[in-house]
Structures are given as C-alpha cells and as structure tokens.
Design a binder for these strands. Sequence first.
DNA 1: TTAATATATTATTATGTTCGCATATATTAA
DNA 2: TTAATATATGCGAACATAATAATATATTAA
Lengths: 108, 108
Amino acid sequence: MNKWIYELHARICNIFSNPKRLEVIDLLRNGEKSVNELSSLMNIPQTNLSQHLSLMRQRGMLETRRDGVNIYYSIANPKAIKAFDIMREVLLEQLSRNEKLIKKLKSA
Amino acid sequence: MNKWIYELHARICNIFSNPKRLEVIDLLRNGEKSVNELSSLMNIPQTNLSQHLSLMRQRGMLETRRDGVNIYYSIANPKAIKAFDIMREVLLEQLSRNEKLIKKLKSA
DNA sequence: TTAATATATTATTATGTTCGCATATATTAA
DNA sequence: TTAATATATGCGAACATAATAATATATTAA
C-alpha cells in the first residue's frame, strides 16, 4: 500500500494548521527575516517563535542563513506561498457565502 | 489586530494535517462518493470515517447530498484540490532533492 | 410494525501539540 | 577572557486530536 505518501503529505501540511506558523509564512513571503525581526513583528516570546521556526525548518518549509549573530529565515519553496494563498481564497469565499446567507435570512 | 484571520486560516488548513482526511480528498477529487464507498476503499472503520467527514463538513470543505439511505460527500470548493496538489508537489520536490543528496553522498 | 442497511454521535482512552520557563549555545565586541 | 546579544533546546503542564467501541438515528423494504 502507498499510504505513506499521505502521512508525509499530512506532515508538511500540518505546518499550516497553526496560526502563528501561518503568520510567519506571511511575513516571509517577500523575503528573509531574522528571528528578532519576526519576533518583534509578531509580539510573541522569542523562545516560542524559535520552536515554530525549528519545526518548519525540520520539515523543509524554511531555510536559514547565518549572518554574524543573526539567523535569517526564508521560505524554501515559493509554491508553499501559492498553496497558502489558495487556501486563504477558499476561506474568504466561505466567509462571503456566509455573509450573503446572513443577509438573506435578515431580510426574510 | 487582524490575527483572527490566521486562526480561521489555520482551522481550515488543519483538515490537511491528517492522512486519512487527505485520502478522502483524493478519493473525492473526481466526484462524490457515499460513506460506504469511501469506507470500503479506505479500509477503515465506518465510525472513524464518519468522524473525519463530519469535521470536514463542519469546516466547509465537504458538502453532502442524501439519496435514499446513502449520503454522498463531495468537495465544496475545487480550489481545495488545487492547494492539495501544490502541497503534494512541494513534498515530491523535497523528496527528489533528498534522493539526489543521498546519491551524491554515496558516490563521494 | 419489524428488520436490514447506512450513517452519525458519544464516551473513553491514547497520543500529539502548544506554551512558558529555565537554561544552553553561538557570535561579536570589549 | 568576560559581557552582551541572538538564537536554540529540554522539560512539564494544559490542552487538543484521533481511534476505538458502543450506541443511536434515519431510510427503505418486507
């Protein structure tokens, strides 16, 4: 059986299942940022951010580059951003469908 | 702050973070299937499958249609399949990169 | 109505995830 | 070397998720 592919697939998609990790991806979409930059933009404890970054790196979603004391993270495969954006569209379409439904119900 | 969007985004992507749910999506990519059909194709207990289907439906990923005693599930928004496929590509590119690396290491 | 089939729900247990805290490591400057 | 800054890691508690088993509901046929 070839089910292992679903396991790996789920493992990498699991990165998208956490709001902080999604925010990281969104912040890195236009290029690399250091841990410091990310952590001040996101307003979360550095130690927690590092945990997320480390997981995303282990699973091949992010790459790192060291420059002196700073470590810069970037998105390894831009296709991941594409998937991110498509799922965002799916979400927004859901929301607007709900909105329309609510309006209909109100006017009835 | 607009962070709620990441919460919702994560919530819907969370569907992709489980191998069985990915298999359901893959099985439904060419059209609806009943719970029975899915459960025999997947070889998992019907009760477990129903739980996954119910979650996917709650989150707007799947729609249902009843025909007599059968309930047919289908994918609500085909864009979700697109996102599924892109992440599959990301994964396969990762795997082939690793393969190449292994070959390199072996020959060195 | 009863039986048979398809599907859903609930409770329980096992497992995984997330976070905060404390601590560790690496680099640079003094 | 020591101090300062940036980043990573290990541990434990709180919480979420997944699987199983048992049971419930809905539809159809007899």
